[in-house]
């Protein structure tokens, strides 16, 4: 895809990329860092994208890889600077959001990475099982069992207030 076209498409997809990143990262600042990394990598590799390929899925994949890289780097740093890192986490949880929103984000943050990714792709971004499994490079059965376990954990943390409101 020509880079100029990609730039236009990127601007329209930025809100969705930010939402996806927000579900993965620990705070909005880290989330936007991920989006920025993904945008830079996408522009660098614009030539790899065929015109017909679904652009959003390609970008989700780039963002997911950037997130995994970041998780690994963080794990390495964490071994060296554990105290500093946990302090940073507390200090960053300051953005304003409705209480339930925060509760859900907190619960999501307690899921294992692979389950959080599955929830972000299917429940939040609305991808089909097939698309999400392809993007995560796992069989559909693996995806659905991750989703089932994630839902169980979320339900246990959050309770059933969602139903009571309905």
């Amino acid at each position: 895809m020509p880079t100029d076209r990609l730039r236009e498409e990127l601007v329209t997809l930025l809100p969705r990329l930010r939402r996806f990143a927000r579900a993965l990262a620990r705070n909005p600042q880290d989330a936007d860092d991920l989006v920025q990394t993904a945008v830079e990598r996408a522009l660098l590799h614009a030539g790899q994208l065929r015109e017909a390929a679904p652009l959003a899925a390609w970008l989700y994949g780039i963002l997911r890889n950037a997130w995994i890289d970041e998780q690994r780097a963080r794990a390495r740093r964490g071994r060296l600077f554990a105290a500093v890192d946990s302090g940073e986490q507390v200090a960053d949880a300051t953005h304003a959001a409705p209480a339930d929103s925060l509760a859900v984000q907190d619960a999501l943050g307690r899921l294992p990475d692979e389950q959080r990714l599955a929830v972000a792709l299917v429940l939040i971004e609305g991808l089909s099982y097939k698309e999400a499994a392809h993007l995560m490079e796992v069989p559909i059965g693996t995806l659905t069992s991750r989703l089932a376990r994630a839902r169980e954990t979320l339900q246990a943390i959050l309770g059933d207030t969602g139903i009571a409101q309905r």
Binding site: L14, R18, R19, A97, S101, V104, I124, R151, Q155, G162
Partner: peptide
């Protein structure tokens, strides 16, 4: 309900001004 709740928690991100 869980799906709707998780979705709703992140929906406001779409409305935020882009940095």
């Amino acid at each position: 309900a869980l799906r709707a709740r998780v979705q709703a928690a992140f929906a406001p991100v779409l409305e935020e001004p882009l940095p």
